[in-house]
Amino acid sequence: MSDLKTIVLQTNDLVVGYRKADKDIALFEKLNLNLCAGELVCFMGSNGVGKTTLIKTLTGLQKAIGGSLEISDNQSVAVVLTDRITSSLMTVYDLVTYGRYPYLNWRVTLSREDYELIDQAIRQVHIESLADKKLIELSDGQLQMAMIAKALAQNTAILFLDEPTAHLDLNNRVEIMNILRGLSRTNGKTILIATHELDLALQTADRIWLATPDKTILQGLPEDLVLNGTFDEVFQFKGFDLKTGKMSHEAYRGVEIQLEGNGYEYLWTKNALERCGYEIKQASKLKVTIFQKENKLAWKFSHGDYTRDYFTLMSLMEGLAIHP
């Protein structure tokens, strides 16, 4: 089954870094990594660990200090970097046109096929309505889509992206990851995304490359890296419980509450109670029951003989806070 995968990129003892005052400074040493066709890999690591440098080295924008890099059939790689484009007159369509430049002669005359690939790239990221807009008129999310469209117009088998979801809101982040996910599944593109957004990476990546503090990169399925504690080790989480995917809360009130209910109502009520410093524990004296009253969600609070109904979590929290 694993034989079905064809490796499109392979590094052999690759040493990545930069030159400073005639001395090589290695950020990663002896990397033996690979990317398979149609695979979406998220490359994770703390800020400043050298994610951009590795992406640039794999793209050929920067020389490796040592080792070698093999890309099957000497294919070129499209890349989306964090570099800003300063031209205020450039339109989205102009930008996507650049994707065809590697295939054009010095007079940059576009063929019918070039136009079709440009249109297709614009359609793939759903920015048809933005084609004539100037880049400076776009939101950060739209600009990122346009950059991805430019990279798609390059029509390469491999696509690298450096922090494509930085500075974006949740909706845009999810949309970009979904589009990239779709491109790898349906178009067979090999995609490498450098990111430090753990939640998105865990939910979309086929595999994770995880940069460790000792200058190497671990490869693995996201779930494996969660369960064997590698993520905790690398990121040194402060107040985030990766196994539940939540912030850890301190039950600072020292009050135990029994909670009855089910489904997502239960989860969100639990979230509210824990965030406000209560501990959820079976067989407590205080009890909150989630129920339906006149087709509306309601919470019944009981303490011995005392009961009271609440219709919002906010009023419930207020009621709990003043309960003796």
Binding site: K56, T59, G60, L61, S76, V77, A78, V79, L81, D83, R84, I85, T86, S87, M90, L95, Y98, G99, Y101, P102, L104, N105, W106, R107, V108, Q154
Partner: peptide, 22 residues
């Protein structure tokens, strides 16, 4: 005029221009 392609490419910045084989 012979440098039209490079000049256009330069507007994207050095890294993107090089990625486009300029």
């Amino acid at each position: 005029y012979g440098l039209v392609k490079s000049l256009n490419g330069l507007l994207l910045g050095d890294n993107y221009a090089r990625n486009l084989n300029i």
